[in-house]
């Protein structure tokens, strides 16, 4: 009990002596956690949307002519030699017209002047679920393009490609901000503790002379790192949560992004981020002590 009393008083003394740099460190840790977890949150949400988009991914192969039953057999054979597919369906000119008309709904009358066969026939290919990566979809599309009688291949929405690239970019940004988080927390914490140690050189020397054990000298510094980690990461996550709710409120107007459901981390992820930050900060203070407090 006396041990903790002494340790806590020591921590209080340290904080009072170097409060401005302590505050800076706290701010840095908070910001790093905020930045990293922000990107991580966006990334996880993107992945979730990506999954959903992948679910209704389909390739549409536009054909010159409507294929007869024989040609259909051939086409199916050719398509399945590339890869197994979930489903292949042939759409005739008439069916295409029908669909288009349905999509137009009330505005159907614009079609009145047009011939019923102005839309090309097509094949709708839904690839297997495991054919998710953009590259494979691209290869598949290139293959389909070479089928006899093909005019053009379209896969789903054009921006799927952009979406995939964006996720890739995000994963890089996340990696960078993760590195930033690691470096800043370790170095900032190490730096402030170094400052404290240098500022109290005389005292630490004396403590050793009067028989302070390593623990007596080190535990306050470790606790300081721990405190920075706990407070910094908790503030970071809380600010992200506030930011998240603000964004959600702003963009929750119907019609706007309604197809995307934004969700926050499950508690376990938040706790993991806090835990890792605490570990990093403690590591930072520990490494400084190894260097400056050789006992």
């Amino acid at each position: 009990m006396s041990f903790w009393f002494t340790v806590i008083r020591q921590v209080g003394r340290n904080l009072r002596q170097t409060w401005s740099s302590q505050l800076m460190t706290l701010l840095t840790v908070t910001l790093s956690v905020l930045i990293f977890s922000f990107f991580y949150l966006v990334y996880t949400n993107m992945l979730k949307w990506g999954d959903r988009l992948g679910d209704d991914l389909s390739l549409i192969v536009y054909l010159e002519e409507e294929p007869g039953p024989e040609l259909r057999e051939q086409l199916i054979k050719k398509i399945t030699t590339f890869d197994e597919v979930e489903k292949i369906s042939f759409i005739t000119r008439a069916q295409a017209y029908q669909r288009f008309a349905e999509q137009l709904g009330q505005n159907q009358d614009v079609l009145n002047d047009l011939p019923k066969d102005f839309l090309p026939p097509s094949i709708e290919v839904i690839p297997l679920k495991n054919l998710r990566s953009l590259n494979q979809v691209k290869l598949f599309s290139a293959y389909l393009e070479k089928l006899p009688g093909t005019v053009k291949v379209q896969y789903g929405h054009e921006w799927i490609e952009k979406f995939y690239y964006f996720t890739k970019l995000l994963s890089i940004v996340m990696l960078l901000s993760g590195t930033l988080l690691i470096l800043t927390t370790i170095f900032m914490v190490a730096y402030t503790i170094r400052l404290t140690i240098l500022g109290r050189k005389d005292e630490l020397e004396l403590l050793k002379l009067v028989g302070a054990t390593n623990n007596y000298i080190r535990v306050p510094f470790l606790l300081e790192g721990l405190l920075q980690g706990i407070l910094g990461s908790t503030f970071g996550i809380i600010s992200l949560y506030i930011l998240f709710n603000w964004i959600k409120l702003r963009f929750s107007d119907p019609g706007y992004l309604t197809m995307f459901e934004f969700s926050f981390f499950p508690p376990t992820v938040s706790i993991t981020i806090v835990g890792i930050s605490i570990l990093l900060c403690t590591f930072g203070s520990f490494s400084t002590m190894q260097k400056f407090l050789r006992v």
Partner: peptide, 19 residues
């Protein structure tokens, strides 16, 4: 380390330069 610390706890020193 610990043994030295324990020994020093049992030795009281009044330094000439006070410290």
């Amino acid at each position: 380390g610990y043994k030295l610390a324990r020994l020093r706890q049992k030795i009281g020193v009044a330094y000439q330069d006070f410290k």
